[in-house]
Amino acid sequence: MSYLVEIWLAVGLVALAAGAAGYIVVIRRAGFAAHALPMAAFPGAAAASLFGFPLWAGLAGVALSGAGLLALVQRTARRDAATALLLALLLAVGALCLSLSGHYAGSVYGLLFGQVFALGTEDLPVLGVIGLCVPVLLFLALRPLSLSALSPELMRVQGGRPFAMEVFFLAVLALAAGFAVPVTGALLVFSLMLGPGAAAARLCGSPLPGLALAMGLALGLAWAGLGLAFLTDWPVGFFTGVGAAAIYLLVRVKTG
């Protein structure tokens, strides 16, 4: 029984982080980046196993360099094209490392779709740190993140640094997702971000209730998905992915 409680707790923590990050992702229109950056976990984990350094170093290293690279390339190239190129780079390097290290096939499924029911007790501390730190960090930076999303120029006039905010945001996103992805899969993290985030952004006029609602919705979606997956033995990612779309459509219809 305690094994199941651990899984519920772990998925709940990921949902809190994803919900908070998702709201910011939506107001900053960074949906593509939110999809691309978590993929840093792929080359990160693969490189760590290939070259034999600790997993956390591989994950953090690749996630942070990915965030930095994206922030830099975004300045000179079109944003979505830059993101697409980064995504391709991360996946291609990951594929290479995995292929060279010889255990390719199983990892791909796990990375994308996760194996939630294979969670171990040792994963909980990492997810606990993410689940608590990401919402707190984003809450503290809520005002500058909102302002620089609305108008980088206004931010600069007021003495802020929009580029620094972009790097900060991408780094938080990359680190949080990068550590959650090997445990829960990229799909779960991503669908817990965008659906609740977009719904909250449409329903709430101001940032703080929006952030809270996004986290609540993500938690509900994650636990509902987990319950259904437990009952049917189908993958969690299916329920959260389709559920996120359903929430979004419902809110769209309601708000017009």
Binding site: F32, A34, H35, G241, A244, A245, Y248
Partner: peptide, 27 residues
Amino acid sequence: PRRAAGRDEAAGILLGAGLGGTALLLH
């Protein structure tokens, strides 16, 4: 949505649902 601003999130939602379907079929 009609306005260009919301296209990003719509594409993301579709992606999530699509990959969810992939996960199920692969399962």
